[in-house]
């Protein structure tokens, strides 16, 4: 029964999967790590490039895209898709 008091709550259970220090690529969602203090990062899986900041010494976050790279990659992908459709 879903209404019983359980030993571990949902929140506690899902928290076990937490990955401190890691962050996801905002294009392909691959989980990555970066050397501490790195200013930018290129996703090894999809090639998208992100500028990083470090709100905590061990936890980076994506601050924004490297505009030129990501715009080019997105436009290429869209062009390929449109071509494929034709």
């Amino acid at each position: 029964m879903t209404n019983e008091r359980r030993a571990e709550t949902t929140a506690e259970a899902t928290a076990r999967g937490r990955t401190y220090g890691a962050f996801r690529c905002l294009n392909c969602f691959e989980r990555n790590t970066a050397p501490s203090g790195a200013k930018s990062f290129k996703c090894p899986k999809c090639g998208f490039e992100w500028r990083l900041s470090w709100p905590m010494p061990t936890q980076p976050r994506i601050r924004g895209p490297v505009w030129e790279t990501n715009r080019r990659l997105a436009e290429e992908a869209t062009a390929k898709q449109t071509k494929g459709e034709k």
Partner: peptide, 19 residues
């Protein structure tokens, strides 16, 4: 929570505008 405790809800902008 830690990001938000440093940057406030503005931290969401990084992810949403980037995508």
């Amino acid at each position: 929570s830690q990001e938000m405790g440093k940057l406030g809800t503005l931290f969401i902008w990084g992810a949403t505008n980037s995508q």
